[in-house]
Amino acid sequence: MAILCKAMILLPILQLAISLTAAYGGNFNQDFDVTWGDGRAKIMNYGQLLTLSLDKASGSGFQSKNEYLFGKIDMQLKLVPGNSAGTVTAYYLKSAGSNWDEIDFEFLGNLSGDPYILHTNIFTQGKGDREQQFYLWFDPTRNFHTYSILWNPQHIIFSVDGRPIRVFKNAEAIGVPFLNKQPMRIYSSLWNADDWATRGGLIKTDWTKAPFTAAYRNFNANACVWSSGSSSCTSGSSSSSSNAWLTQELDVTNHRMLRWVRKNYMIYNYCTDLKRFPQGLPAECKF
């Protein structure tokens, strides 16, 4: 009888734990709108899974219903497998207007057996040209992996499976605009870019392999929602403990992981490209 009672007590606790685990990922039906693709973007599994597809006629894309001004954004992606040369899977934050801000993850497709290139960029007030590129230390087409953006007033941190790969610091003190005034939506798209995406456009998209498909799950935004000109983080509705990411810095362990990625997997860094910037590297590269 005692064992039975314990089981009856533990069952609701286990059910609660399962429900909390499932609730980690946001619901795509509630959080996003499909914006283009004529049916090529599909939300499935009661909003827990989203797929984008690309064929010769069109790609597809979606965007968040909410705008954010600072946040910790996580998304799990599984990229186009096989010969994905010419395709680009983009996952990014972007503000509206001609002087927009933007934070980019772009995954450049490959020939079968060649690694994807993870292309990152930062735009401030419509100016980009801040590319850093990486190979990944795993096959991003076999399983889902988590790609994260931590965006707070001090810096922007790109991470893959919790491992930081890039940091863009607030350098307003030396005249570099920072992304702290314009709310941004989350966007993603799968599209054809065979004029530049794979080996500078030398390798074209093989349409006999279409449709190309990328999958998304476990979206999570611990973020300041922007609505009617104000932020949820200043409305008094959010606790300070839930917003610890607003002041989060890299600790010693994360600095070590960042150095490991840069040493072993970075393949391009605009901050070391003296041929591109013969008059001097951009100011933030010295910060």
Rank of each mutant, 00 (worst) to 15 (best):
T87H: 10
K209C: 06
L281T: 01
Y187M: 02
W245L: 05
K286C: 00
D251M: 06
R276H: 11
N83G: 03
Y187R: 02
A215T: 08
K56T: 01
L14A: 15
I9E: 14
G175K: 08
G109R: 03
H119Q: 11
N222P: 01
A215R: 05
W196V: 05
L111F: 00
Y24L: 02
K181S: 13
Q132L: 10
S230Y: 11
K6H: 06
F178I: 00
D104Y: 04
L281I: 01
Y92G: 05
Q248Y: 07
M44E: 15
T247N: 14
A210E: 05
L250D: 01
I186Q: 06
S241V: 10
S227V: 07
V80T: 13
Q132D: 11
R256C: 01
G201Q: 09
A2N: 10
F158P: 04
L108Y: 12
S240Q: 14
K6R: 11
K94H: 14
D139A: 08
S19V: 04
A90W: 05
D161R: 06
T234I: 04
N222I: 02
I165N: 06
T213F: 05
A193H: 13
G39K: 08
Q248A: 15
A193S: 14
A23S: 15
W191G: 09
S228R: 14
S159W: 02
Q76L: 02
N254F: 05
